[in-house]
Design a protein around this nucleic acid. Structure first.
Lengths: 187, 187
DNA sequence: TGTCGACATGTCAGAACTGGAAGGTCGCGG
DNA sequence: CCGCGACCTTCCAGTTCTGACATGTCGACA
């Protein structure tokens, strides 16, 4: 049900066609809420059907520009401020970690070290995005900056965690609590 | 394709029935890879069909105990060490944040403050889980502890981020870069 | 002995998501 | 004026996921 609201949010921000929206899903939203063409166009049709969106302009190549309706906007507002909405989050990385016991310690350590590298790359990528212009010019207002900061902190956290995790392996084979090295920021 | 591997991993760790596996999905894996009954039983049937698992014992109530086959184990090992496997991650929280512009600053700040509370609760929950016995006794070896640490750091990061984000709102309405307050740990 | 909770599996309709194919139009540069 | 890349939508087959409903057995305890 979240794709529905993502579309409402984007169209509320500025009227757009399916094509325009896809461009946003491929860029800004790629790491937040991936969606394919078929999904987007299908959902737009359903939203129009439900009168949460309306086609308010037709362009050159059969282009249909969607605008949010009053009903659509109030549904969007309801959803946006509803803190209880929280889909289950799947984490493929952690799933790997759970089963790292099937390979020897060396391979496990190597896997975690690689994840640290990948997290570092993500961090680098986001930092470049942060300093790039495309940012404060257009797009999702100042709130996009908050999302970016979340991404930066997440990448940094995952890098640190993966390095810590790699260092844990072998040093404490099965028993004995060795959780002291670095804990999450306390309070 | 990940549920498949989660099942292989669990069965590799210890032979189990669908019922046993469901108990694990409801607890240890609940926040890592949620799965429903229908999914688990269906996937077990498919895995048995593909001869990655085999039924090696039958119990009282039609209970079927699954064991991993050689083919299953090698597929599991292949997957576990493949760092390139990384499903797209959806983040409903960030989707909300992107569209927080549709409500006024007060409501937006309130939303973020609430998220900070929720993150704090999650942190508390995990800390309790960490000190609880059920932990080093059984379950997913020492690697589960690494996953728990990931959860702890993630919860702490989200709490801090949400508090920071709430503090940003209103102070810098649209323009002017105010990213200085707290950045992710640098390097 | 009866009954109730835990054990245990199976099936299904519908929603969400994936990945790709197909088809058509406009506009600009050569 | 023509060809090609960008624009733009629609449809579909297959997989995964959700949220039930249905069915039945065993064991402990009153």
């Amino acid at each position: 049900m979240s794709l529905r609201h993502a579309l409402l949010g984007l169209v509320a921000y500025h009227p757009a066609s399916g094509y325009d929206l896809m461009a946003i899903f491929r860029t800004s939203l790629a790491h937040v809420w991936p969606a394919t063409q078929s999904q987007v166009y299908g959902e737009l049709a359903r939203l129009t059907d439900a009168e949460l969106l309306a086609v308010t302009a037709q362009g050159p190549r059969g282009r249909k520009e969607f605008t949010i309706t009053e009903a659509g906007r109030s549904e969007l507002v309801r959803w946006v401020t509803d803190a209880s909405v929280n889909g289950p989050h799947r984490n493929e990385l952690l799933l790997h970690v759970f089963f790292l016991g099937v390979v020897d310690a060396g391979e496990a350590r190597q896997y975690l070290a690689r994840q640290a590298e990948l997290a570092t790359d993500r961090l680098e990528l986001l930092r470049r995005l942060e300093s790039s212009r495309s940012w404060d010019n257009e797009a999702l207002g100042s709130y996009g900056r908050l999302a970016l900061e979340h991404g930066l902190r997440l990448a940094a956290m995952e890098r640190d965690w993966a390095e810590w995790a790699a260092s844990q392996i072998g040093s404490a084979p099965t028993s004995s609590n060795g959780s002291s090295t670095t804990g999450p920021s306390g309070r």
